[in-house]
Simulated scan of single mutants.
Amino acid sequence: MPSNVRNWLAAIAVLFTASWAHAQATVYTVTPPSAYAGVNNFTAPCGAGTCQNFTLAMAASGSFTTSSPLAGSLVAANIFPLVTAFSFSDGLNTYSSADAAVRVVRFNVSTDAGGAITSVLIAVERWQTGTSPHTAGDRLSVLQFGGGATFAAHNTGCSSVGISLTGMADTCLATPSDASRAEANGPAAAWFAAAAPGPTSIPTLSEWSLIVLAGCMGLTVIRRRRVQDNQPLIAL
């Protein structure tokens, strides 16, 4: 096979591989949102931070995206290295992977043989006072899915700052309760998996692969005709 044709085929293989990898990105969503069953709100007057109350009309919600579907038969596995994005809400606060004030304490997941989530232990935080590096005494909000329940705390104090189980520095490791803190709790969340949507405003990788394939086929036809006519080939 001529070297130029081999090069085109290699390029097609790379594009198809990249397209396949993109299609494997998966979004796991709390479905339906986990409604709170109980709240324990702050005691007025607010003594520290910015006090707000949870209500039973609120719920924990959100999703996370992984670069590939979760493997089957995971047992409390740390999947944070696979997570490309996340966004959660506790009804008062939003915890986004794009927010510099957000920290990930842990991101452990168990799955069944088919890769469906059976349980999680996901804990995220968002600093509400202070600046990085934070210190004991700064205040934050916390959201946790797992342990058979969903738990949220708003405007809680921090008594210890360090490195989280996911390796993230500047994370609060202990959150003692005080009269200015509000809490909410609910049942364990259920998670629904779906393929991540691809880009819509530009051609996808698979479309580019088809374009390259068409060009390669055209090149092959031209080459054969020139060989048959004993005409010199144009160098590529």
Rank of each mutant, 00 (worst) to 15 (best):
H134Y: 12
S159D: 13
D99S: 11
G130I: 06
A179Q: 14
D138V: 08
L165C: 03
F107P: 00
L140G: 04
G186L: 11
T129P: 00
Y95L: 01
A182V: 05
L121V: 07
N155C: 06
Q128R: 12
A136K: 04
A152W: 11
P133E: 12
N108T: 14
A189P: 03
L140P: 00
D99V: 09
D138Q: 07
A116Q: 08
H154Q: 13
N155I: 06
A188D: 12
S97P: 00
T166R: 05
A184W: 08
C172Y: 04
R126S: 10
Q128C: 05
T175F: 14
S160Q: 15
G162M: 11
A174E: 11
D99F: 08
L143G: 06
S164I: 10
H134Q: 09
T135N: 07
G130Q: 06
A98T: 14
Q128F: 03
H154P: 04
V120Q: 02
A188N: 08
T166M: 11
F192L: 15
S96K: 01
V142D: 12
L173D: 03
V104R: 02
S160P: 00
D138P: 03
S160I: 10
G114A: 15
A113M: 02
N155A: 07
A169M: 08
W127C: 09
A113L: 04
V161H: 07
T171G: 06
Y95R: 01
A136C: 08
A116D: 06
W127F: 10
G115S: 07
M168Y: 04
A116P: 01
A179F: 12
A190S: 15
E183A: 12
A169F: 10
T175M: 14
F145S: 08
I117D: 00
S110D: 02
I122N: 02
S177T: 13
T131E: 10
F145D: 07
S141W: 09
S160C: 00
R106P: 00
G146S: 11
D178C: 08
V124Y: 03
C158W: 02
I117W: 00
T111F: 00
M168N: 08
V109E: 00
N108Q: 14
G130M: 07
P187R: 10
W191G: 01
R181L: 13
D138N: 14
I117P: 01
R181Y: 01
V142E: 10
D99G: 10
A184K: 06
R181P: 01
G148P: 03
A194I: 09
S119P: 01
A149D: 09
S159F: 10
I163Y: 06
S110N: 02
I122L: 12
T129N: 03
I163E: 10
S164V: 09
R106H: 05
V142K: 03
A149H: 12
A194C: 05
T118R: 03
L165V: 06
E183N: 13
T150P: 04
R106E: 15
N108G: 05
S160W: 11
A136P: 07
N108M: 13
